[in-house]
């Protein structure tokens, strides 16, 4: 059961990445490769807030949310906005990788290349729960991730903005013709995704350390989560993330420390091979 808790806690981080991908994907149709880097930035800001500035929890969270939201806004302005309306579809493939790389590089320049320990905001005593032990901070991470994912899912179906986002994911031009400001919606999605990543910086950092290349593995596992759960589905991404975390934890526990990534990779290839449709980018029949 301890392995299950560990898997769920790691999986929560992957779910968070998947959620961030989905928020932006739904509202703007862009796959933001750099989203994992936003989460990385969140862990560093949490470090700066909690350790360097010695702020209490709430201001640290606010610093993270505001800081990363601004970074996301800048990314949208610089790397996404100039490409809107271009016919060449794979521009964002290059520019979001570019944005991710710049964020990696800036983090390395600002905070150095060594991992920094982000303090846990909750007591470190592990709890015994359902026959396994789990740190309170990990439990909080799992619970809050669930809450965020389910909340976003409900919000997207029962609020005007959420529905507008689903509608513009389906047909941007038709959405614009209904009076929806699709550009602002896209920008808003980046800011929202950034703010969520920023708020979770403290909890994620407590589990992973803050390190400049954190984004790489998170991007990958977040993408695996999407591949499992189906793109554009918040609940799918949530489940996909937890599933990936569990596979990772069990592979590490029962196969060996070098293997979890390889096993997840195998699962990823298998999913792409066996169930490519309905996973990432649903194929539309009307294409001529």
């Amino acid at each position: 059961m301890t392995t299950v808790w560990a898997g769920l806690a790691t999986g929560a981080i992957y779910s968070l990445v998947a959620i961030g991908y989905n928020v932006v994907l739904l509202a703007s149709g862009t796959f933001n490769f750099a989203h994992a880097q936003l989460l990385m930035a969140g862990t560093f800001l949490a470090y700066t807030g909690a350790v360097t500035l010695g702020l209490p929890v709430l201001p640290t969270l606010l610093l993270g949310a505001a800081g990363v939201a601004v970074v996301a806004l800048l990314e949208e302005r610089i790397a996404i906005r100039p490409l809107l309306g271009r016919s060449d579809a794979h521009g964002a493939l290059i520019t979001t990788v570019g944005a991710a790389t710049i964020l990696d590089g800036l983090a390395a320049v600002i905070w150095g290349r060594e991992p920094l320990t982000v303090p846990s905001v909750l007591p470190d005593e592990p709890l015994t729960l359902l026959g396994g032990t789990v740190r309170p901070v990990d439990l909080a991470l799992i619970a809050l991730t669930l809450l965020t994912g389910v909340g976003l899912h409900l919000w997207s179906r029962h609020s005007l903005l959420g529905l507008a986002s689903l509608a513009s994911a389906e047909d941007r031009e038709a959405a614009a013709a209904r009076g929806i400001n699709v550009r602002l919606l896209g920008t808003g999605a980046f800011v929202l995704a950034g703010a969520i990543a920023g708020v979770f910086g403290l909890l994620v950092g407590a589990r992973t350390y803050a390190v400049f290349d954190l984004g790489h593995s998170l991007a990958l596992f977040g993408f695996v989560a999407i591949a499992i759960g189906g793109s554009g589905s918040q609940l799918g991404g949530l489940i996909g993330g937890f599933a990936t975390g569990l596979v990772y934890a069990f592979a590490a526990r029962y196969i060996g420390a070098e293997f979890p990534q390889i096993v997840v990779f195998g699962v990823f290839l298998l999913i792409l091979f066996l169930r490519p449709r309905g996973l990432f980018g649903a194929a539309l029949e009307r294409r001529v």
């Binding site: 490409l83 521009g91 964002a92 290059i94 570019g98 590089g105 390395a108």
Partner: peptide, 18 residues
């Protein structure tokens, strides 16, 4: 600065001179 430079090149190439 290598990562920042690479990223900058990618951005530049993706946006202006592709």
């Amino acid at each position: 600065w290598q990562l920042v430079i690479y990223g900058g090149f990618l951005l530049l190439a993706g946006i202006v001179f592709n």
